Structure formats: C-alpha cells, structure tokens
Simulated scan of single mutants.
Amino acid sequence: MIDITGDSRVITSNQQGLNEKLDEVVLKHLQHDFKKPYQTHTLQAFKEVEKWVEQQGKPIIFDSCCGVGESTYHIAKAHPEAIVLGMDKSADRLSKHPNDNEEVIQTLDNYRLLQVNLNDFWRLAVEAEWTLSHHYLLYPNPWPKAKHLQRRWHG
C-alpha cells in the first residue's frame, strides 16, 4: 500500500508502479478511432474561448482539473506572457472561484475558467492545432486503485 499525504485527504493505493494492464489498454485504444460525439456545453465553451485565444496570440497553458481555479490564477500570475485556460467538469467547483475580486480582475486578464468535458476539449484543441507551452494536471489521482485504471486519463 502507498500512502501519500499533503494538504488534501490521504490517498491510498494498492498499486505499486505501472499498472499491469496499462500496455494492453493503451494498445487497444490506439487500434480504434475515438468516435464519441462532443458534449454540447464543451463545444460551445471551446468556440467562445477560441476567439479569445486567437486574439491574444500568446502561448497557451492548460490547467486541467483545476477545481476552484486557484491553481489557474497562480499559473496565470506566474506566466503573464501566456494565456491560461483552467478547466474542470464541475460547475459547482468553478463557481467557488473568487472572480468578484476587483483587484484580481484588473491585474490578471490572461486566464479563463471553463466548465467542460476535458476529453472533448483536448480533442478540439488538437483539431484546432493549438500548441501548448505547458499543461498542468496538479491534483491527485481520484482513482488510485489498480482496478480503476480505465477511469484515469491515460487509461
């Protein structure tokens, strides 16, 4: 068992190292086209932010699974030369971002928070030929058990 502690709850996993089925799962997915239709809310969010991204003409940074957007704010502050897209599937978590802070709004206009399906958004970004300068996935794996491999991003 692996225990990882920090500011968040304790994450416990019965998996040591790489998952024994990782190669099999990845190879299976590589042999078939992914044909799932885009979710409407994600397609709409992409179209809206795509215009802003093109207008900025700056390097693009993704902050995937950003939760309340605190990490997105700090990444944007650390990278004023870039635009940062903080994305999460939960509208509830994103609504907790302190976006009514006038000082933040006036000093940082290089980030946006988006409620999207990440798989769909990433596919749209690839189709639009976006090149990222950075991509952050900062939060612990919410599916730590070995049997949950296919719930993880890479599975």
Rank of each mutant, 00 (worst) to 15 (best):
N110L: 11
R123C: 07
Y136K: 10
N141Y: 03
P80K: 00
F121K: 09
Y73G: 01
G67D: 05
P80A: 00
H134D: 10
A128L: 11
C66S: 10
Q115D: 05
S71F: 04
H74P: 01
Y73L: 06
L138G: 10
K77M: 04
N99F: 13
S64G: 12
L108I: 05
L108D: 00
S90P: 04
I83K: 02
T72Y: 02
L108H: 04
L138F: 09
G67S: 05
A125E: 08
R123E: 10
I75G: 00
D120I: 06
S90N: 03
P98M: 08
V116C: 04
S90H: 06
T72F: 01
L137M: 05
L137E: 03
V84M: 08
D109A: 15
L118Q: 13
S95G: 03
E81H: 14
A125F: 08
H79T: 06
T107G: 07
Q115S: 09
R123K: 11
H135R: 10
L113S: 03
V84A: 08
N101E: 15
N141W: 05
W130C: 02
E127Q: 15
P80I: 00
D120A: 07
Q115W: 05
W130S: 03
P80Q: 01
K96W: 01
E70P: 04
A76S: 08
A128W: 14
K77A: 05
Q115R: 11
V104Q: 13
E102A: 15
V104A: 11
A78E: 02
L113V: 02
R112H: 10
E70S: 14
A91C: 02
E81Y: 10
M87F: 01
E103R: 11
R93G: 05
H135L: 14
L108K: 02
P80F: 00
E129I: 13
